[in-house]
Every structure is written in C-alpha cells, then in structure tokens.
C-alpha cells in the first residue's frame, strides 16, 4: 500500500455539494442582475470578482483542492502567478505603446 493512499479516504457528503451548488447559482444570479444595472466600468470589475469567487469554490470543493497536499497548492499558485505575469506585462506594454 502506498504512503499516499490515506488521502483517498476523504469523502465529501452529497449535502455539502448541493450547498456549494446553490451558492454558485446564487452568485450567477447576482452577476446577471448586476450586469443589468449601469455601473460603467465597475460592471466588468464586479463580474470578474464574482467569477473569481465562484472559481474559488469550484477549485476548493468540486476539485478537492482544499483537501490536497501543499505541493498542489504551490503548483496552482505558480500557474496563476505565471498567467498574471503574462496579463500584467501585456497591459504594461499597451499602456506605453499607445
């Protein structure tokens, strides 16, 4: 039996998933409602902020990231950090080039 086998035993109950799902639906409802209100540039900021909250729940509960070892979390932070470097530098470039 491998040393990592013990991690497999973490069982998330059906009820918890339904709870997370209802939360995700509620956040979707909020995004759609907010998009109908004219808030100028804040609309996109709020929409992306809510999308990030939804992603956090999907990652932690549906994808079990909450119950994984530290190395998984370091990996995902590294991947996101890399992505934000791409995004940040692209916009930095555009703000000077124009």
């Amino acid at each position: 039996m491998s040393e990592h086998q013990h991690q497999e035993s973490h069982v998330i109950e059906y009820g918890n998933y339904i709870f997370i799902w209802l939360g995700l639906l509620a956040f979707t409802g909020i995004t759609v409602t907010v998009s109908g209100i004219n808030l100028g540039n804040w609309t996109i900021v709020i929409a992306l902020f809510i999308a990030c909250i939804k992603s956090w729940y999907v990652l932690n509960y549906f994808m079990h990231m909450k119950y994984e070892e530290m190395v998984f979390k370091i990996f995902i932070l590294t991947a996101l950090f890399t992505f934000f470097i791409f995004l940040g530098f692209t916009f930095w470039d555009y703000s000077f080039a124009r």
């Binding site: 990592h4 190395v71 995902i76 992505f83």
Partner: peptide, 28 residues
C-alpha cells in the same frame, strides 16, 4: 494515485495557459 492526480493538475495548467492566452487577447 497521488502522482496521477498531480500529473492531471499539471495538464490542467497547460489548459490554463491555452485559454489564458485567448483571455489576454480578448482583454487587449
């Protein structure tokens, strides 16, 4: 199983970069 899941996550990061690139194009 642990290595298997870790490998899957590594693959998912390549997907993040694939779609991420398109999201950057969209943003610009």
């Amino acid at each position: 199983d642990y290595g298997s899941r870790l490998g899957m996550w590594l693959f998912l990061f390549t997907e993040l970069i694939l779609f991420g690139g398109l999201f950057i194009v969209y943003a610009v």
